[in-house]
Design a protein around this nucleic acid. Structure first.
Length: 116
DNA sequence: CGAGTGACCGCAA
DNA sequence: ATTGCGGCCACTC
């Protein structure tokens, strides 16, 4: 289910990632905070690697808007995947969070302290 | 069952 | 502004 998330941490992360619309991105810390542990951003990455590969992990980026390093194909592969979704990636392998960052309903960026 | 690692983030010096 | 360290959950050895 989408709202009915009653499982482990990684399972909640997958649920949020699965709800990320195309052309939008979310940060690890954000997903971690939504899951109940703003300091457990590492688990988001770990879950991504051991989670369901069918999920759009390519839409998940770090707080800097930069791409991940362990992505299949490297940052360049991640960049290509984002561009393939219609996302705009800079030459520094970064995306404009203030424009492409997406948030689930009932949540505001102020709670995560984003540089908006 | 115990210890270590991991696609990170936040704070302190 | 930059560098270094701790912390959290899940998975693997």
């Amino acid at each position: 289910m989408d709202d009915d998330i009653a499982a482990g941490f990684g399972n909640r992360v997958e649920a949020y990632v699965r709800q990320i619309p195309r052309g939008r991105v979310m940060t690890y810390g954000q997903l971690a905070a939504l899951c109940g542990s703003p300091r457990a951003a590492r688990i988001v990455g770990g879950t991504a690697h051991f989670g369901d590969p069918d999920l759009p992990w390519q839409r998940v980026v770090n707080k800097q808007g930069g791409l991940a390093s362990g992505y299949p194909g490297g940052r360049e592969g991640h960049k290509a995947a984002l561009e393939a979704e219609g996302l705009q990636v800079s030459d520094e392998l970064t995306v404009d969070l203030g424009r492409l960052l997406w948030w689930p309903a009932g949540f505001e960026p102020s709670q995560t302290g984003l540089p908006l």
